[in-house]
């Protein structure tokens, strides 16, 4: 375990009431500046893992260290920027005020806040929408506001839970490119949950493949595609190789889970893979 990791999980297990083991023996280290994606079948514990890192859920056992301190301390020190699947914007605040919310809580004064909010609106290309209400924006624009809010106070760690899950393919690809651009500029560390294999490969420096019942890390795929990535990355032969590799690992993960928990696994896998 190296001391410089932003996130370091060792032997993390999470059991919910009712005998659901959402996560079992998770070991994972995320280095500064990494973009790590979590991918796996629905219900394998991706969101739970993200919530444990963000101290929104307590692990049943195991250690979570973030920037050398406990997850709780990291949360109290406001080191997390979280982007949820639905953008979680407050209707009673304008777009600008939504973006400035964490800054208000941090006690920034008005003019400093206004400057940063303006910068953020530019970053996510929403200049001119600052005075709009969230519900006047499209889903993709709302999600960009939520990203701007998460980035506004330059948190050490960005946690994103399927931020583009509800968007169409075109918007999704455009926002992927935007996230990469923002990530490169802000030099933040990102933990990103997704259902989409191409999205995971396109964005990440590493893809963590998870399997379910119980949720475990089945494999970790290093993504050695050149930076910065763009439209041509998706045409790259290596991109397709990596997509195939992640898909294979996902499949193996599914089978593994089957063997360890035959009764349950059969039902679930049988229901999804023809």
């Amino acid at each position: 375990m190296s001391g410089s990791a932003v996130v370091s999980l060792s032997n993390v297990t999470k059991a919910f009431g009712g005998g659901v083991t959402a996560l079992q023996s998770i070991d994972l280290e995320v280095q500064p500046g990494e973009f790590v994606s979590l991918i796996g079948p629905s219900g394998c514990g991706k969101s739970t893992l993200l919530r444990i890192v963000g101290d929104l859920v307590e692990p049943t056992s195991g250690d979570v260290v973030v920037n050398g301190k406990s997850a709780r301390q990291a949360r109290l020190d406001r080191e997390y920027g979280i982007v949820f699947q639905d953008s979680v914007l407050y209707d009673w605040r304008t777009v600008s005020k939504n973006i400035g919310l964490p800054l208000e809580l941090l006690g920034w004064d008005r003019s400093k806040r206004a400057d940063r909010v303006r910068e953020m609106l530019e970053l996510v290309e929403l200049q001119g929408f600052g005075d709009h209400r969230p519900w006047q924006l499209s889903g993709g624009m709302q999600q960009r506001v939520s990203i701007a809010r998460a980035l506004s106070f330059s948190p050490a760690l960005l946690l994103m839970d399927e931020p583009f899950g509800a968007l169409d393919e075109m918007t999704r690809e455009r926002l992927n490119a935007e996230v990469l651009r923002i990530w490169a500029r802000s030099r933040s560390t990102v933990l990103f949950v997704t259902h989409s294999i191409p999205e995971a490969v396109f964005l990440s420096t590493r893809v963590v493949v998870m399997s379910r019942r119980p949720g475990r890390i089945a494999a970790i795929v290093d993504v050695d595609l050149a930076q910065p990535r763009g439209a041509d990355t998706r045409e790259d032969a290596r991109f397709f190789e990596l997509v195939t590799e992640v898909r294979d690992r996902l499949r193996e993960g599914g089978l593994d889970a089957d063997r360890t928990a035959p009764g349950e696994g059969e039902l679930v896998v049988g229901g999804e893979t023809p």
């Binding site: 929104l56 949360r75 109290l76 020190d77 406001r78 979280i82 949820f84 639905d86 979680v88 809580l105």
Partner: peptide, 14 residues
């Protein structure tokens, strides 16, 4: 209030 609206505030240590 939706749970996520509260979680967001928790993530800012509110």
């Amino acid at each position: 209030v939706p749970a996520s609206a509260i979680e967001l505030m928790h993530s800012y240590a509110a």
